[in-house]
Design a binder for these strands. Sequence first.
RNA 1: GGCCGGGUGGCAGAGUGGCUAUGCAGAGGACUGCAAAUCCUUGUACGUCGGUUCGAUUCCGGCCUCGGCCUCCA
Length: 459
Amino acid sequence: MSLAFYNTLTRRKEPFVPLDPKCVGMYVCGPTVYDSAHIGNARPIIVFDVLYRLLKRLYPAVTYVRNITDVDDKINARAKENKEPISALTARTTEAFHADIDALNALRPDVEPRATAHIAQMIAMIGKLLERGHAYEADGHVLFSVPSMPDYGSLSRRSQDEMIAGARVEVAPYKRNAADFVLWKPSSDDLPGWDSPWGRGRPGWHIECSAMSREYLGVTFDIHGGGQDLVFPHHENEIAQSVCAHGQPFARYWLHNGYLMVEGEKMSKSLGNFFTVRDLLDQAPGEAIRLAMLAAHYHQPFDWTAEGLKQARTGMDRLYLALRTVADIPAEGRDRVPFEVMAALEDDLNTPLAIAHLHDLATQLNKAVTTDEKAKCKGALLAAGDVLGVLQQDVEAWFRWVPQAGSALSDDAVDDLINRRIEARKAKNFAEADRIRKELADQGVLLEDGAGGTTWRRA
RNA sequence: GGCCGGGUGGCAGAGUGGCUAUGCAGAGGACUGCAAAUCCUUGUACGUCGGUUCGAUUCCGGCCUCGGCCUCCA
C-alpha cells in the first residue's frame, strides 16, 4: 500500500512522494491568538494530527510546523476592548489553545513559530519581492502586485478577471490592481509596529506563513495543510509570495479539510450554535470529540451535532469496554499498526474506514478465546488507536470521566454502594440489590455483573 | 453571476462497474437472579431523468436540491 493524498493543487488524488524520504516537511496554518479555539479550529488540528502521526510511522523523520499568529488587527481590537496589553492577550490565548489541543490528544508540532519572532524574515522577503518587481510601495504600504505573477490563482482556480469582477469590497485607492494585497502596512503609535525600510509598520496577514515555512522547511517543501476556507485568498497569496520571492516551487501537496457546520447550519455567534473546544470538553471526554471529528472524511463538509458526539462517545465506550475485559493481559505487538488501518489512512486519510477497522478489531478482541489471542488483539487495537490518537488513556479513567459541571457521585460513594449491593446479593436480597442498581443508574452509573465481580461506568 | 464540494438504509458515514462496509438505533435468539456488556441472526440504501454497458449506486450528460468560497473566518 502506498500513501496518496487529494491534492488541491491538481484536484486529484496523487501518490505522495516526499522531496526527501528521510524527512518529510509539513506546514499547517495555526491559530490567531485572540480568542478561545472553537470547534471549527479543532477540525484541522485533529485531522492534521492524524496525518502527522501517520507520517511519523512511514518516514524516519517529520518536521511539523504550525504557526501562532500573534500580530493581527483582530488581536489589536480585542486587546483594546479588554483593556489589556497585547502580549498578555496573546500569551493567555496561546496557553488556553495548548490546553485545549492537549485535551484532544493532538501532538505538539515540532516547531510552533510565532509571527512576532519572525518579523526580520518577513521584512527580508518583502524586500526580495520589491527587488524582483513583484511588489510596490504605495501610501506607506507595500503591496504584492498580482498582475506580476502570470499564473496567480492556480490553487483556487480563478482568473484575475474573475476576482476583480467578484470583488465586493471597496478597493483601497492606493492599490494599482484590485487584487493586489498587503505585505506591509504602516502602524500608528498606538499599534504594534517594527522598523522597516518602509517605516514603522506591521506585516500583512499572508507573509508570515511564507516567511516561517521558508525558515523551518525550506523554499520547497512537501505538505501544506489548512481549512478549505483558507484556499483563497490566504494560501493563494502564500504561494504568490513564496514563488515570486524565491523563483522556485512552494508546497507540493496541498491538503484542505472541509467546512464545519453545526446542526446543519453554519456556525456563528448570532445563531447561538457557536461552541468552543472548552465548552465541548466540559461535556464529553477529548477522545470522544476526536472520534466524532474523525468519523467523517476530512475532505467532506462536517456537520457537528450533539447526536454525533453522543454516538462517538458510545463508540469509544465500546472500544474501551473491549479493552476492559483484557485489563490484566499485557498487550502484544502494540508497535505494529494493523495493515487495514494503515491502508485506510494511507489512502487519503480515510479515518472513517480506519475507525470501522477499529471496531472490527474490538469485535475480534471480544471473541478471542485464548490468552495469546487476546494479547495480540489488544496490541492490535491499541496500536490502531495510537495512529488515530485515541485509546490513549487508562481504561478505568475513561469510564470514570465526569462532566465539569455535573455534581456526580464520587468514586468512593459508588464503590460503597456497590459493596452494599454485593452484600445484598450474597444474602439473596435481590430487591435491595436492584434498588441500589436503580439508585446508581439514576446518578448515571451503570453496573455490570461479570464473572470477575461487579464493574461500573458512567454513562 | 463565477468557482468548488455534496445528495447512500431510521441516524451517522465509508466504498464499489457485478460479490451490497462499520457504528448507533430497531427486531429475534444465547447468556444473566435482574440488568448491562458480549456473541449469533436480521433489515427490497444509494436525489432525479436519460446515455454507455451483458450489467451502474459506482462512468458520462441534463435536471432538482443542499452547502460553501469570491480579500484578512480553520
